[in-house]
Each structure stands twice: as structure tokens, then as C-alpha cells.
Design a protein around this nucleic acid. Structure first.
Length: 309
DNA sequence: AGCGAGCCCTGCGCGC
DNA sequence: TGCGCGCAGGGCTCGC
């Protein structure tokens, strides 16, 4: 489950179950799902068993469960393209693509299993040490502690983070010498945004994906940030975007935001603003969706990087 | 600094 | 039916 709203749906679903829960058992079914845990399967299983989870925390698309007792560390999760964290009662049947299972003893729910299910195995779990945040503010949403997993330390705050610095974002965005969508997908500049919400926010802000960041006015950059927040918040309110059963909450339920998308996945259908058919174009080995009328290509600039005449 | 390519994977829908 | 192809929400590393 990819982008910020979908990951936040998962975090919020886990929180009441995992807070204060003891890890009674760990089973790694697929060792490749520990790509972020180089110490290997046995180390992961042994070190986690018996530990107590304090909370469920998220920054951007990264999720972690800080552990209370013992070393200052957390269970880190990145869902990649297809990862899910599902809650299962112990007698429930095994999920087809179950990769890792954490059996918990939850104060609120009793015995319950967190199943890490991941079709493509791009996601990963790990035990990661917690390090202090650079700015002294909480590491993510869901825990006041000013700590982040070491593997998340280079990830920027996301636009829904109360400590997100709007003016600093505008400054850094405009200092880039690249296209605006490429910048939005760079998780070290701003986190939580992926292909869907980048396309949706750019449509709302009437920007072409290749619009040079250096030529964005501060006002345009702030507008874009406001549209990003709007689309992320609306998607979150709808439970995230689900095109199929792959993007679901901890109970396996889909979100409804796909019904409100304006460009993503709508190639050939009319722009909801002007009626022009939406186009899908290759971009960064993926696809970009835009309205050819509302989001005109940037005009070529003379000098370095300009297309040959 | 930035970027393209390549890599990590499975599975679905489509056209032939 | 079966097969090959293109496509899918991400991120990391490398060489230029």
C-alpha cells in the first residue's frame, strides 16, 4: 500500500491493537521480506520475541512500532508497492502471500496476529535502531518521542506533519534544477507522495509534471503544497485509494478515493474541469497522467537543456 | 546535483 | 486455452 493516506489508514488501524501489546511469537515465512534487516531471519525472530510495542508511528510512507523494553529500537515496515499489514485472529486461515507473522498479546484485543502480506516483495520489515530527530521534534505521527528509525532519518517530513516547514519546503523546491513532479516524488524533499497524489495535486495546481522547479513562483509553490495537503487529507478521509483488493486497511476493507480521482488512471476520459481527454505519458519508467489543456508543457528555455532547434 | 537505467518481484489483463 | 507482453501505488544503487 503505497502512499501516505493508505499507510496512515494502516497505522491508525494498528494503533489501538498494538499499543502496549507483547510480541508472543514471530514467524518469517519469506526471508526476502527482511531486505531491510541484514542480520537475517533468526536474529529478527529472536530479538523481537517477548518485546513490548509502545505505539504505531508513521512518517511519509514509512511505518514503525517503537519497542518499550530493552534497546531503543523499533519494528520498521515499508509496504513497497503491494505490502499489507492485516489483523487476523489466531484461528484465521493463512493469507496466500503471507510473508511474516507477528503474534501479539494485546491488552485491548487479546491474542491477535499482524500478518505482513506482500505480493511483490518490494516491501520489507526490519528491526531498526531509533535515533534522535535532527530538529528535536517528534519523529512521526503517532508518538511524541523525538526519535526515528535510522533508515528513516534521511526521509523528509510529510505535508500532514505539524512540524512541516512550508517556507523551507518552498525554498528547497525552488532551489532544485529539475521538473516539479520529480521533486515531489523525492522523499528527501517531501515524503508521502507517490504517483497517484503527485498527479492529482499537479492537476489541481494546473502544473505540468516537467514544469521547472526553479521557475515556480513562491506563490505557485505554496498553492501546490496546499493542493497536496487537500488531496492527501481527502484521500485519508475516504480511507485511501483502492483499485483492487490490494490496497486495504488492517481489516481488509478498501478505501473509496479512487472515485474522486481527476487524472490518475483516467486516460482517455474527459477532464472534469474542461472536458479535454486526459492523457497518460511515460515518466520515470512509470506513467504520468495530465490534462493537455489545464496542464500545458513548459515552454522550452534557451541555453543548456533546451531541445535542439 | 541530478538523472537514467537497472534492480528488487508477482500477478493481472489483454491481444494474438 | 495458452503464451507473451505491458503494466502496477516504491526505493535503492550505480555510473555518468
Amino acid at each position: 500500500m503505497p502512499e501516505l493516506p493508505e499507510v496512515e489508514v494502516v497505522r491508525a488501524g494498528l494503533e489501538p491493537v498494538v499499543a502496549g501489546a507483547r510480541i508472543a511469537g514471530v514467524e518469517v515465512v519469506e526471508p526476502r521480506s527482511l531486505k531491510r534487516h541484514p542480520q537475517g531471519v533468526a536474529d529478527f525472530e529472536e530479538r523481537l520475541t517477548g518485546r513490548r510495542i509502545r505505539a504505531a508511528v508513521r512518517r511519509g510512507k514509512f511505518l514503525w512500532l517503537p519497542l518499550d523494553d530493552g534497546p531503543r529500537e523499533a519494528v520498521l515496515a515499508h509496504l513497497g508497492m503491494s505490502g499489507q499489514l492485516l489483523l487476523r485472529t489466531e484461528d484465521a486461515g493463512t493469507d496466500r502471500q503471507l510473508r511474516v507473522r507477528l503474534v501479539l498479546e494485546s491488552p485491548a484485543f487479546g491474542p491477535i496476529t499482524v500478518a505482513f502480506v506482500d505480493q511483490r516483495i518490494f516491501g520489507s520489515l526490519a528491526i531498526d535502531p531509533l535515533v534522535p530527530t535532527a530538529d528535536g521534534a517528534p519523529g512521526g505521527f503517532g508518538d511524541p518521542a523525538a526519535l526515528v528509525p535510522a533508515q528513516v532519518a534521511h526521509i523528509a517530513r510529510d505535508p500532514l506533519d505539524p512540524v512541516f516547514d512550508d517556507l523551507d519546503f518552498v525554498r528547497r523546491l525552488r532551489a532544485r534544477r529539475t521538473g516539479v513532479k520529480r521533486a515531489l516524488l523525492d522523499q528527501t524533499l517531501v515524503s508521502g507522495i507517490g504517483n497517484i497524489y503527485a498527479d492529482e495535486a499537479l492537476w489541481a495546481a494546473r502544473l505540468h509534471y516537467d514544469a521547472p522547479t526553479a521557475r515556480l513562483s513562491s506563490r505557485a509553490a505554496l498553492t501546490l503544497l496546499a493542493e497536496l495537503r487537500l488531496v492527501l487529507e481527502r484521500a485519508l478521509a475516504d480511507g485511501g485509494t483502492s483499485f483492487d483488493a490490494q490496497y486495504v486497511n488492517v481489516n481488509g476493507a478498501s478505501g473509496y478515493f479512487s472515485q474522486r480521482l481527476h487524472v490518475y488512471g483516467r486516460a482517455g476520459r474527459p477532464c472534469t474541469r474542461c472536458g479535454t481527454p486526459i492523457v497518460r505519458e511515460p515518466f520515470m519508467n512509470r506513467s504520468s497522467h495530465r490534462c493537455p489543456t489545464c496542464q500545458r508543457p513548459p515552454r522550452a528555455r534557451a541555453g543548456r537543456g533546451a531541445p535542439a532547434a
